[in-house]
Every structure is written in structure tokens, then in C-alpha cells.
């Protein structure tokens, strides 16, 4: 496994995209530190970048990388190597390099300017989101042979979770505003990793008071250990389920 993984890393580093991504995150974070010295505000500003940009970069980079390394995978599969090993090596290679880029890009400024404790939640949710969207992109890549289609499906995942789902959720909340919806929305949020990440982050920032009664309810739930375990568990399912399904499909795929 490590032998295949080594070449996946080698291939990813050569395209330099990861370096640009790291540099982009570094510049953003450094710039925010120049504007403000309140860690809370910096985290809040970064949150908006993280929730939009990180999933987008993850899906686009993953699908493009996978299709570009089709030849490599084909070559490996004619060798005495298990299919799952080839596939999961690709996953690990992409996921680890994106996570490293994120950790360095966001974490390094916090380490330098202090306030690493504030960034802990930001870092962990960002890593979770990266993993979730890399998984989803792998799933979309095994669903079709066509590169353009796969990128389309992957972008649709991103679009759905970052925009469409929120719209639907708002519509539900608005239409049924006469009913107590806290528990229902809580359940609905679990179906969207981006929303889940957003709420975990917002509650860390002590601005949940702005969200009224629902905010207080969430604070009560997510602030507790059970809530933390619940959200981490849901996010882990979001990471594992798509990649497990993708591995199953890939194991029987004709090349």
C-alpha cells in the first residue's frame, strides 16, 4: 500500500496545485490577521471561506486528479495488487495532501500569531469537510466514465449541499413556522455536512445568542459531550459511506 501511495503523492506534488492551494489559504489567513486582532472575528471570517471554498476545491481537484491518474491506475491493476489497495491509495493520497494543505494554510498563521486554541474547531471541521467532499467526488468519479459528467456530478454535490439544501431547509422552516421545529431541523441538518460544520463553528463563537431560541437549543445540544459525539459521528458517516460505496462499485468495474 505505501509503495503505491508514494507514487500517488509524487504525482500530486508535481502538479503544484496543492502548493497553490496552501498558498491561497495562507494569504487569506495572514490578511485577516492584518485586518483584525480579535480571534473570534478572524475565525468567523475564515469560516465563510472554509464552508464554501474547501468543499469546492476538494471536489474539483479530486475528480480532475482521478481522471488524470486513470493510466496509472490501469497500469497498477495489471500488476499483482488488490483493486481496493490501488483505489484506497488514491483516496489516501488525495485526502492527506488536501488536509495537509489546509492544516498548514490555516493552522500556521494561528500558530505564529497565537490563538491556536480558537482555531481547533475550525481546523477539525475543515478537515472533516475535506474528507467528506473527497469521498463524494470519488463516488461521482466511479459512477461514470466521462470526465465532464463526473465533474458535473461532483459539482452538483457541492451546489446541493452549499446552496440548494439550505434553500429547502429554509422553505421547510418557513412553511411550518407555527410548529416547534428544533428537533426536526436538528435531524435535517445531519443530512448536510456543510450545515453541520457551520453550526458547530457558529456555536463555538458565542454568537449563538443571535439565533434566538433555536440557537439556545442548539447551544444546549451541541455544547454537550453527546452533541459533540453526535456531530463527529455524523460527519464520520459522511466520510465513510460514500467512499465505501465507491470502493464497492470500483471493485467490479470494467476498465
Amino acid at each position: 500500500m505505501t509503495r503505491v501511495l508514494k507514487y500517488v503523492f509524487y504525482d500530486i506534488l508535481r502538479t503544484r496545485f496543492i502548493l497553490f492551494y496552501t498558498a491561497f489559504l495562507l494569504v487569506c489567513t495572514f490578511a485577516l490577521f492584518q485586518f483584525d486582532s480579535d480571534y473570534g472575528k478572524i475565525v468567523l471570517s475564515l469560516m465563510n471561506i472554509v464552508l464554501m471554498v474547501v468543499p469546492l476545491i476538494a471536489v474539483v481537484f479530486t475528480t480532475i486528479h482521478l481522471y488524470n491518474s486513470y493510466e496509472f491506475m490501469e497500469l497498477m491493476l495489471a500488476q499483482p495488487i488488490h483493486r481496493n489497495i490501488v483505489f484506497l491509495s488514491e483516496y489516501m493520497g488525495v485526502a492527506l495532501s488536501l488536509c495537509m494543505a489546509y492544516l498548514i494554510g490555516i493552522g500556521l498563521p494561528f500558530l505564529l500569531f497565537g490563538g491556536i486554541a480558537y482555531s481547533a474547531t475550525l481546523l477539525s471541521t475543515g478537515i472533516f469537510l475535506t474528507l467528506v467532499f473527497v469521498s463524494l467526488a470519488f463516488l461521482s468519479a466511479v459512477l461514470t466514465r466521462d470526465k465532464a459528467k463526473a465533474i458535473g456530478i461532483a459539482l452538483l454535490f457541492w451546489f446541493y449541499f452549499s446552496l440548494i439544501y439550505d434553500g429547502l431547509l429554509l422553505w421547510v422552516v418557513y412553511s411550518f413556522s407555527d410548529y416547534p421545529l428544533e428537533k426536526v431541523t436538528l435531524a435535517l441538518i445531519a443530512f448536510n455536512p456543510i450545515d453541520l460544520a457551520r453550526i458547530i463553528l457558529l456555536l463555538q463563537l458565542d454568537i449563538s445568542a443571535l439565533m434566538g431560541y433555536t440557537g439556545a437549543f442548539y447551544k444546549d445540544f451541541f455544547g454537550s459531550h453527546v452533541g459533540l459525539l453526535f456531530s463527529a459521528g455524523i460527519l464520520t458517516i459522511w466520510v465513510i459511506a460514500p467512499i465505501a460505496l465507491a470502493t464497492r462499485i470500483f471493485a467490479r468495474k470494467d476498465l
Binding site: 508535481r14 493510466e71 497500469l75 499483482p80 495488487i81
Partner: peptide, 20 residues
């Protein structure tokens, strides 16, 4: 099974290799 592939040397019709 995958181990058996060590017994096979394969020359494809169109060799596709990592381009760079």
C-alpha cells in the same frame, strides 16, 4: 484474487502510462 497476476506479463494493445 490478485496475487495470480504476478504470473502474467501483459503487453497492452495501446499502452497508457502516466503522461508526465
Amino acid at each position: 484474487d490478485w496475487k495470480y497476476r504476478e504470473k502474467i506479463g501483459y503487453m497492452p494493445q495501446i499502452g497508457r502510462y502516466p503522461e508526465n
